[in-house]
C-alpha cells in the first residue's frame, strides 16, 4: 500500500491483526449489507472471545452466524437476534452473552464512538430493563438515560462502490449501520462490489469519506435474502 491507496488483495491482509478478545463492529441489517467475505475470514482465522456489535447476528451458517458454531463470539451487542437455532441455544445456556440494545441507541452509540462523543442522553429505554444500572437525568421535564459510545478494535463494513482512496458509496437499504460502523473502528476494513480509480466517483455523492477507511477489498457477494416477498401480478 502507498499513500492513500487502501486496497488490499487478500482477506488475510484485510483482517491481519485481529486477535482473540477484540471488539468488532459490523455493519448490516439482517443479511442485507453485510461484509460476507470478511466474516468468512474471521471464521477461517478462528479468532475467539470476540465482542461483536451488530444490529443482528446472522442466521445459521451465514453472516455472523458463521462465528457461532466454534464459539468465536463471547458477547454480542445487538437489537434483534435469535433468527438462528445455534444462537438461541448458546444464549439460553449462557455460553453467549447477549446485550440487547435498542436499534436507534446502537446506531447512535456507533456514530458517537466514531465522532469522539463518549456518551449521550436518550429517552429510549427509560423505565425498561435497558435503563438498569445507567445514569438517569431529567432534562426540561423529561427523563433520559446515559448511553455510552461504542468503538471497536476493528470495524467490518460492506459498501457498494469505493475508489482506491476508500471513499464509499452504499446502495439502497444495504447502507443501514455501515456508515456508522465505518467511523467507529480503530481499523476499518471495507468489502465492496466494485473498486474504481480516485476521481471516478462524484465527490457530491460519496456517503463515507476515505479518511475513515483503512483497508479495502473487492468481494464476491451471495446477498442472501431472508424474507423473499413478492406481489402477484
Amino acid at each position: 500500500m502507498s499513500g492513500f491507496d487502501k486496497v488490499v488483495t487478500s482477506y488475510e491482509e484485510a483482517m491481519a491483526g485481529l486477535e482473540d478478545n477484540m471488539t468488532v463492529i459490523a455493519g448490516g441489517f439482517g443479511l442485507c449489507g453485510i461484509p460476507e467475505g470478511l466474516i468468512a475470514q474471521i471464521e477461517k482465522m478462528g479468532t475467539k472471545g470476540l465482542t461483536v456489535a451488530s444490529n443482528n447476528c446472522g442466521v445459521d451458517n451465514f453472516g455472523l452466524g458463521l462465528l457461532l458454531p466454534k464459539r468465536q463470539i463471547k458477547k454480542i451487542i445487538a437489537s434483534y437476534v435469535g433468527e438462528n437455532a445455534e444462537f438461541e441455544r448458546q444464549m439460553m445456556s449462557g455460553e453467549l452473552e447477549v446485550q440487547l440494545t435498542p436499534q436507534g441507541t446502537l446506531a447512535e452509540q456507533m456514530r458517537a464512538g466514531g465522532a469522539g462523543i463518549p456518551a449521550f442522553f436518550t429517552a429510549t429505554g427509560v423505565g425498561t430493563p435497558v435503563a438498569e444500572g445507567k445514569e438517569e437525568r431529567n432534562i426540561n421535564g423529561r427523563d433520559y438515560i446515559l448511553e455510552e459510545a461504542i468503538t471497536g478494535d476493528f470495524a467490518i463494513v460492506k459498501a457498494w462502490k469505493a475508489d482506491r482512496y476508500g471513499n464509499l458509496v452504499f446502495r439502497h437499504t444495504a447502507r443501514n449501520f455501515n456508515p456508522m460502523a465505518a467511523t467507529a473502528g480503530k481499523i476499518t476494513v471495507v468489502e465492496v462490489e466494485e473498486i474504481v480509480e480516485p476521481g471516478e466517483l462524484d465527490p457530491n455523492e460519496i456517503h463515507t469519506p476515505g479518511i475513515y477507511v483503512n483497508r479495502l477489498i473487492k468481494g464476491n457477494f451471495e446477498k442472501r435474502i431472508e424474507q423473499r416477498t413478492v406481489r402477484s401480478v
Binding site: 442485507c32 436507534g104 456507533m110 437499504t173 449501520f177 456508522m180 446477498k223 416477498t229 413478492v230
Partner: peptide, 25 residues
C-alpha cells in the same frame, strides 16, 4: 426483487416515487 432493498421485517420491498435512503443513525 433486489437483495439490497428490504424493509425492517427483512422482506423484499420496492421504493415509492419520491423515496429517500439513509443510514440507521
Amino acid at each position: 426483487i433486489d437483495a439490497d432493498l428490504i424493509n425492517a421485517g427483512k422482506q423484499t420491498v420496492t421504493m415509492a416515487t419520491g423515496a429517500s435512503l439513509f443510514d440507521s443513525a
